[in-house]
Design a protein around this nucleic acid. Structure first.
Lengths: 275, 275
DNA sequence: ACAAAAGTGTTAGGTATACACCCATGC
DNA sequence: GCATGGGTGTATACCTAACACTTTTGT
């Protein structure tokens, strides 16, 4: 490594504690789910000092001997009340602008999690108030044609730089279901093709052609497979019972071909597409 | 934020120095260029303690009052000897596994930079040895059909977890030129369509059909535009002089349609495609 | 019977792939 | 002339988008 910045001189080799600027390192989680036909994200209400009353992404400090990924999984378990499952959790980006936390220099490694619909109002492990917010009800920079200033009715105030993180997180989700099997991560263990289509429609905010969607799913290797038993789902309301499917594997798969979202759904995020 | 891990108890609010585990935060850079028909990356040879003699990504500590992005740009300038240009530099991922640096707990924010072909042997600002390495000559996990154990002839030893970072960085580059205009970032200010095609071929390790590539470039909005003067490039060796083009904008643009790499070029990275 | 959702099929238009062919230059 | 790279065209296979139609359930 080369020499660092000027302020606290860092020796290229043989450095030890005290030689380097100390940082706090945290993980922040954008946990998404699809529920009631909308994409939602879990936020917690702050009960203390900076940004009191504002809503923030769940998160916390990384332990000295803890891997960053482990810290993210730990926070996910704490916030949702569920133990480490087969959910998908991935790094999003690291945010470390000086002053983003008024108290001290904190670098936050933001993550994105894909969760199926959970038993409704999981109270956070610590007594703070936590709830799902529809992404459309948030006031995020450059989202869904958002003007960012045109405050959505009842949009919560977001703490720190979490509006920025959320915008990037949403972007990631919308892009990722195009070319990976992650849309199934929003579904229960078995699901109908209609339910899977609803995931795409909720995330992208568009309507898809049922027939074409069905053809795409079935010709796309590695996305779904018929549920082991040939049972069907008794219809929720009216309509013919639907065949049940399950995700093809636990992990993430790259899809061939991808399902590209319609151009009009993509245009809304064009200005932020330059990572 | 919720409560942190056990070791150094972190107060959810009102914490201050000493309450949190101290981390060193660095930036590491994977600076790519295309030269001699191959994708190359800039590495520096370590002259000291851990991993002495091994090759590492250029990088260094982030200053206390320095933004992470600024630190990355600073390192880029130091390593290439050029001031902040219009190059493309983006965050890749953060690596923070305990023990990745044997000396202390360091969290590294890895970046990827796209550079045009530079005046050849830029000596690093500090006297260490720096050179371009062809990606194909490196022994990276799961790359180009790599077995990772089948050591490439003359493959350098890579320091820390930099082999892993490089694999992810290469992956990002290969994916990014599919759907953004970033291939032009490897080209000089004006370039021929043949040169642009060579970029794609070098990065993906495939041959493309000249005719189809040309049609794609020209029908794709926002990629290239004819150079202001209608000059041509005198042929390097033999052949007809070629028309010159320039990148359409400074920034990054999402391409419609994208240029998807052939399936066989994608298969080589399939196992790593699950982020 | 009717509405709603599942499932099947068909067709027109566009895009990609693999070529074939001519042009301009250096050797 | 001939090799090399630039530039243009075309035909086929394939994929996509749009829409029509049938089936099965609840009310």
């Amino acid at each position: 490594m080369s020499t660092g910045t000027d302020a606290p001189a860092t020796a290229p080799e043989g450095y030890d504690a005290g030689d380097y600027p100390p940082f706090g390192v945290t993980v922040d989680l954008a946990i998404f789910t699809v529920r009631d036909g909308a994409l939602k994200v879990l936020l917690v209400e702050r009960s203390a000092d900076p940004y009191e009353g504002a809503w923030a992404l769940p998160g916390g400090f990384v332990g000295v001997d803890e891997d960053i990924d482990d810290a993210a999984w730990r926070e996910l378990a704490e916030e949702t009340g569920l133990t480490r499952t087969d959910w998908h959790l991935e790094q999003l980006r690291t945010y470390g602008t000086p002053g983003r936390d008024p108290r001290m220099r904190v670098v936050s490694v933001a993550h994105v999690a894909f969760a199926p619909d959970l038993p409704d109002p999981q109270a956070g492990s610590d007594a703070r108030c936590a709830r799902w917010w529809a992404v459309d009800d948030l006031d995020l920079p450059g989202l869904r044609g958002g003007d960012h200033d045109s405050d959505v009715d009842g949009a919560p105030t977001l703490a720190f730089d979490h509006a920025r993180i959320l915008a990037a997180a949403f972007d990631r989700v919308a892009a990722k279901i195009e070319y990976t099997s992650l849309a199934t991560a929003f579904c229960p263990p078995t699901f109908t093709l209609g339910e899977l289509q609803h995931v795409y429609e909720a995330v992208w905010g568009v309507r898809l052609d049922r027939s074409n969607f069905r053809r795409w799913v079935q010709q796309t290797t590695g996305l779904v497979r018929p549920a082991p038993t040939d049972e069907v789902r008794p219809p929720q309301g009216r309509g013919r019972p639907a065949a049940l499917f399950e995700a093809r594997t636990e992990g993430v798969r790259t899809l061939h071909p991808p399902l590209l979202r319609p151009a009009d759904a993509r245009a809304l995020r064009a200005d932020r597409s330059a990572r």
